[in-house]
Nucleic acid binder design. Structure first.
Length: 250
DNA sequence: CCACGAATAT
DNA sequence: CATATTCGTG
């Protein structure tokens, strides 16, 4: 009944959703002083990321220069959101933009998702290639992906069947989410999250590079209704999947 | 022109 | 190896 996932069920899991990318500055702060729940209260941080390499010098709302986007670190939690999103729109409809919207992670770009999606697909493929057998598939390299259960239907389909079926009506979640509590980005960071964990340090540690890394942390309120719901449904063995999408495989 | 995705670069 | 960026295609 239970799977053997869950590497570190940190409070973050329990915390509602919505995560935001925090700035490199903060990331560095974490890196330097590990165990400190320094009130980063700093909410004034905006993502340097929204910076298209060029143009935009007019509107005056985007810093637009001098800052480049940091490498995004996909934490298990973030990946979970990713998988949840993909699972619910159906892997068939899972394209970067849609996924990005469903995830509702501030600062997440389509490119970020596209890149991750590409890798995720490879992972799924690899998994099929020897899923039950031993032999080199699913190795140590898949840690991240292994941290989230694969919704059962992502695989297979070597043949190309009609997986086109009904797409649940709650798909437009993205928009629902947005008009639910859409707060301004800046406000999201205002929360005095007490549960900020240091797993992030782990990820930072993996980065031997000197480039600043953007990490994510669970933020505060914000969308928790529906997203949370579908997150629960992820558990296999329950009523799950059928409501979500076609379990068409043969 | 935009978005996707495979290939390629860092 | 993980993520970003490029590039061809639809």
């Amino acid at each position: 009944m239970r799977d053997e996932e869950e590497e570190l069920p940190s409070p973050e899991e329990l915390i509602p959703l919505s995560q935001s990318l925090i700035t490199p500055h903060l990331a560095l702060a974490f890196d330097l002083r590990s165990t400190h729940h320094r009130n980063n209260g700093n909410s004034g941080h905006r993502l340097p990321q929204t910076t298209p390499p060029q143009a935009n010098s007019s509107a005056g709302d985007e810093p637009a220069r001098t800052l480049k986007r940091q490498r995004l670190v996909w934490t298990p939690q973030l990946h979970k959101r990713f998988v949840d999103a993909v699972a619910h729109i159906g892997i068939k409809n899972a394209v970067p933009k849609t996924i990005m919207q469903l995830m509702s992670v501030e600062g997440l770009t389509r490119e970020n998702v596209a890149s991750h999606l590409q890798k995720y697909r490879l992972y799924l493929k690899r998994m099929q290639s020897g899923g039950g057998g031993r032999g080199g598939n699913v190795g140590e390299s898949d840690h991240l992906f292994a941290s989230s259960p694969v919704p059962a239907h992502f695989l297979q389909q070597t043949g190309r069947q009609s997986s086109d079926h009904f797409i649940p009506s709650f798909v437009p979640l993205a928009e629902t989410l947005q008009h639910q509590h859409h707060q301004q980005p800046s406000q999201l960071l205002h929360r005095p999250i007490s549960a900020v964990k240091m797993d992030q340090s782990l990820f930072l540690a993996r980065q031997s590079q000197q480039q600043p890394v953007a990490i994510v942390r669970p933020s505060s309120l914000h969308l928790h209704s529906q997203v949370a719901n579908y997150a629960n449904d992820l558990e296999p063995g329950a009523k799950t999947v059928l409501t979500l999408f076609p379990t068409r495989q043969d």
